[in-house]
Design a binder for these strands. Sequence first.
DNA 1: AATGAATCATTAGTGCTTCCAACGATTCGT
DNA 2: ACGAATCGTTGGAAGCACTAATGATTCATT
Lengths: 157, 157
Amino acid sequence: MENPSEKTPAWWESLPSWLLTQTAHHAHRLVGDGFSSVGARGYHYRLLATLEESGPASQAALGRRSGIHLSDMVATINELADGKLVERAPDPSDRRRNVISLTAAGKRQLRRLEKRLAECQDELLAPLSPEERQGLTELLSRLLDHHNRRTGTPEER
Amino acid sequence: MENPSEKTPAWWESLPSWLLTQTAHHAHRLVGDGFSSVGARGYHYRLLATLEESGPASQAALGRRSGIHLSDMVATINELADGKLVERAPDPSDRRRNVISLTAAGKRQLRRLEKRLAECQDELLAPLSPEERQGLTELLSRLLDHHNRRTGTPEER
DNA sequence: AATGAATCATTAGTGCTTCCAACGATTCGT
DNA sequence: ACGAATCGTTGGAAGCACTAATGATTCATT
């Protein structure tokens, strides 16, 4: 949707689902640009952040904790390992597994990404007052929780 | 993100950009399912709705008004024309153009889609009170407006 | 201990939406 | 009449999420 130049008073533009997806599109673009300005993308950040807070772990475990699909972990780790941000070593205690761990460079990259991310939040919410920001966050949390319960985390197993 | 089964207390999950994109993901899924239950998708709805409120027009004009990229209009119109929901006729006054118009069947389909769409809004906002729904809508509108001004509608020409 | 079930890493491929680049054909501006 | 702009079309890219299949390894049950 690069060019809504001609007056576009489409009535559907006031639907919550539209407002939500379009605003999210802007958010996604902001964050994506922020990440790519340091040569990364969303999956990279999520994996690095998960690694820091879980410590070294197998790809499958990291996938579960970060919400990244097993099959996408492979490429993500490959890319990060190419840049020496992450290390992949076989697990001696379980030869099916690789143990992934964060390098010092990876930690530095993570700091950069966190900084960008914080800037993006501010840019995203620029027109809102602090109270409004908190209100929005709370409403969205409730919605997300509700829908995650219904579909996302089926409490499986 | 099908499987966040293992406790996933990732701290980034409280960031507005995350809440926004994830909630939007649910919204998108809800609406997409609603549409596909009558054999359509988002672009179909947007084009049909735009056609009804603008009347017959060229593909380029419809693209501008609906926010659908020129290159995506082709496939969208092909699909709708296959189902006789829309008609594509050469414009005698400008041989570069096609004139696209809505058929009776297209109008009926539009009514169906609007119905689904309304149902989806309700499902999407289920956990919120009427006041909260309005508050959310207003906050999102402000955000969207702000960002559209900065990037979306460059007031070009 | 043996066997079937589950887990792990990997490859390959799908879908959706948005966008870009390029192309001929046609029309417009000057 | 000329170059510039517009129109339709094709083909491709990216990001995110997900599906299916495979071989290797480990686990759980009898």
